[in-house]
């Protein structure tokens, strides 16, 4: 069975990250190598924050992005991605959405949320970044649009936005998901 992976934009382009948020210059080579090892088809999702806030935006939490306009922006971006995923699922492929845990937009299992963040951007990016359970706004929108085909779609977050990011552990998690069903006839 062919595996199609829909990557958070920044996994191929860390230049889309906020200042001090990038863990590499451009492409996340360990993630790419893993996808190549599993012979995955790669799709790159748009970065909802890049076109919305530009390259000089500060790190933020869900509450700061959670406005009707940003949700409409995410929906506009997610609709063609969902259509592309449906087309891949229709060919018999299994689809894995790979987000960024800790991101207010692209988180899968972990996002960042706090009603207290706001005002002057004087919060350090790492130590007290308020990571919480839940998905980011774009991921939430995309998975909602995919509710009819959700059984054929898995989602996993790479914790690159977490203070205690453990690359080996995150790659192991991704490797395990990519390995599931790899031997299935498709």
């Amino acid at each position: 069975m062919r595996t199609v992976c829909y990557l958070a934009h920044c996994l191929l382009n860390a230049n889309a990250k906020v200042d001090e948020g990038a863990r590499c210059q451009g492409v996340s080579s360990p993630v790419l190598a893993l996808l190549r090892d599993h012979d995955c088809t790669i799709r790159q999702m748009p970065c909802p924050e890049l076109a919305f806030g530009g390259t000089s935006r500060f790190w933020a939490v869900r509450e700061q992005y959670d406005t009707p306009v940003y949700r409409a922006h995410c929906r506009r971006l997610a609709e063609p991605v969902a259509a592309q995923i449906r087309a891949d699922v229709a060919t018999g492929a299994r689809v894995i959405v790979i987000g960024i845990d800790g991101s207010p937009s692209m988180g899968v299992e972990l996002t960042a949320a706090s009603p207290e963040w706001g005002g002057r951007p004087d919060k350090p990016r790492d130590e007290d970044y308020p990571v919480t359970l839940g998905a980011g706004i774009f991921t939430e929108t995309l998975l909602d649009l995919l509710s009819g085909v959700i059984l054929n779609v898995r989602a996993v977050g790479i914790g690159q936005d977490l203070f205690d990011y453990d690359e080996a552990k995150e790659l192991e998690k991704l490797d395990a998901m990519l390995g599931e069903g790899a031997g299935d006839a498709g």
Partner: peptide, 23 residues
Amino acid sequence: LSDLALSGWGVVALPPATLPAEI
């Protein structure tokens, strides 16, 4: 793509040209 990664380039990937126009 791996060569570009090693060279430090970030990559913006265009969608497959075979997709329907509405997508």
